[in-house]
């Protein structure tokens, strides 16, 4: 599904190398998790994959189902099925959440040559999916993320994911800021989408999320590289011992 090879990324504006050769391969149907110390480059990886400006790829490649992602505009990557749940969802004053969702869904459908969803059908689907994430009608009416609590913003990300039904979902610390119940809701939302045709990359600091979303593979990222990969037990190890052991082991 997603194949990243030797990806090197630096900041466009300054000589700062952030990703220093990332290799990662996520098959359809699998859930991969990335853990790693603050500043190791996890969010940068997710941004570069989704096409945010300000970064320069100096080496390596990233493809999704064989398509070169790095050649595509952000909206084209989205239409191709890539989705990023932001670590820090953006507030957009003046744009209603519902308008935003419908515009996004229909733009992607249009890009794929599908027919737009009718207003009635859209409303029905959105209500149903919002309900299961305990997002009330008021939050749908309000401007995108404006005045949302941290947890509400994260649930709103998952609602977008549920509406867009992407093939490759990247979740950047979607669990941080969530209370225990909300974490369960979000995990349920993710698990509901787990499917043989869909890949997940879950970035997290906490083993707890991985109790709910069982990963197939866990990677440790440090200083711009994947330094270790393993099964779910790797997350437990991090939870108990921190990164020191792993980092000294690979150094």
């Amino acid at each position: 599904m997603l194949e990243i090879k030797n990806l090197h990324v630096k900041l466009e504006e300054e000589e700062k190398q952030i990703l220093k050769g990332v290799d990662l391969m996520i098959e359809a149907g699998k859930v991969h998790a990335i853990m790693g110390p603050n500043g190791s480059g996890k969010s940068t990886l997710s941004y570069v994959l989704s096409g945010r400006g300000g970064y320069e790829v100096t080496e390596g490649s990233a493809t999704m189902e064989g398509v070169d992602l790095l050649e595509l505009e952000p909206e084209e990557r989205a239409a191709a099925g890539l989705f990023l749940a932001f670590q820090y969802p953006v507030e957009i004053p003046g744009v209603g959440n519902m308008t935003f969702l419908r515009t996004a869904v229909n733009a992607q459908r249009k890009a794929r040559g599908q027919e737009e969803m009718s207003a009635a059908e859209f409303l029905k689907v959105v209500r149903e999916r919002a309900k299961s994430l305990k997002i009330d009608a008021d939050m749908l009416k309000r401007p995108v993320n404006v005045g949302f609590s941290g947890g509400e913003k994260k649930r709103n990300e998952i609602l977008q994911m549920a509406m867009l039904e992407p093939k490759m979902c990247i979740l950047d610390e979607t669990d941080s800021g969530l209370d225990v119940d909300a974490m369960k809701l979000v995990a349920d939302g993710v698990n509901a989408l787990r499917d043989i045709g869909r890949g997940f990359l879950v970035i997290t600091h906490y083993q707890r999320l991985l109790d709910h979303i069982q990963p197939d593979v866990v990677h440790i990222m440090a200083d711009g590289r994947i330094v270790k990969s393993g099964g779910p037990e790797l997350a437990l190890e991090v939870e108990h011992n921190g990164y020191a052991d792993i980092l000294s082991e690979v150094a």
């Binding site: 400006g53 505009e73 989205a78 990023l84 932001f86 953006v90 515009t103 890009a111 867009l164």
Partner: peptide, 13 residues
């Protein structure tokens, strides 16, 4: 940031 957020959801520039 708002621009990238929208585009990352598939909304053309």
């Amino acid at each position: 940031d708002a621009m990238f957020y929208l585009r990352s959801r598939g909304v053309p520039e």
